[in-house]
Simulated assay, not measured.
Amino acid sequence: MSSNSKFITALLVFLFAFTLKGTAQDYEVINLETLLNSKQRAQKVSSQKSSLNKKNTDNSLNIEKIETLVFDVSPTIYIQDNNVHQFENTTPIMASIEDDSYRIIYTENDLFQNIEMVKLRYNKNSNINIDVSKMNSFSSLKYFFIQCESSCTEKELANIFTNAKGISILYQVIQSE
C-alpha cells in the first residue's frame, strides 16, 4: 500500500470515528428499578468485602442522591398552567412539570438555579422536545426523572432530549390512575 493510500485510509478512519462521536448521545437513559437493583447487588457484594474501591463509593453516593430526590420530600417547585408555583419558603432542588408546560423551563428564573432534578410525566401521545442547552437558569441540573404512563423504551425517551451532555435521564413505568 502506498503512503498516499495509507494516509487516505487513516483520514477516512479518523473522519468516520469523529462522525460517530459527534452523533453519539452524551447522556444515558436509565431504568430506575434497574439502578436500584444494581445498588442492592453492590451492597451485598460490599458487605462481603472489607473495603470498597473509590469508584464503587462514588456510584453508591450518586444512587443515594437519586433515591433522595425521587422518594424523599425535597423542596420542589411545580410547573403547571405555564406558571411556576413555590409552596415552601426554601431553596428548591426539584422541579415537577405537571402538564405540558415544559417550555417554561427555557425562561430565566432564579428559582431554577439550584434545581438538581426535573420530573415529568410522559405518555406516547406527548410531543415533548427538550433542548437542555436552552435551559440557562438550570445551573445545577443533573437529572431528569421521567414517569412513563405506559410502557416506554430508552430509545423513545432519549429522543426527547437534545444537548443533554452530562445529564442522566432516569425513568420509571407507572400505572395510570
Rank of each mutant, 00 (worst) to 15 (best):
D100A: 12
A95W: 04
N82E: 08
R103P: 09
D100Y: 12
H85S: 12
L111N: 10
D100Q: 13
M94T: 15
Y122D: 09
L111H: 06
M94K: 15
M117G: 04
L111G: 05
T90V: 12
T90C: 02
M94R: 15
L120Q: 01
D81E: 11
S96W: 15
V118E: 07
Q86G: 13
M117Y: 09
T90D: 11
Y122M: 05
T107I: 07
Q80L: 14
A95F: 06
I115E: 02
Q113Y: 00
T91R: 00
V84L: 02
L120Y: 08
N82C: 07
E108Y: 00
I104C: 02
Y102V: 15
L111D: 11
F87Q: 06
A95E: 07
D99V: 12
K124L: 03
L120W: 04
T107F: 04
H85E: 10
N123W: 02
I105R: 03
M117N: 08
Q80G: 04
T91G: 00
N109M: 05
K124T: 00
I97D: 08
D99F: 12
A95P: 06
I93D: 06
T107R: 06
H85I: 14
V84C: 02
F87D: 08
K119P: 01
E108V: 05
D99K: 09
N82T: 11
F87S: 06
N82I: 14
R103G: 11
T107Y: 04
T91H: 00
V84T: 10
I115M: 00
N83Q: 14
Q86N: 13
N114C: 02
R103M: 14
Q86R: 10
D100G: 13
N123Y: 01
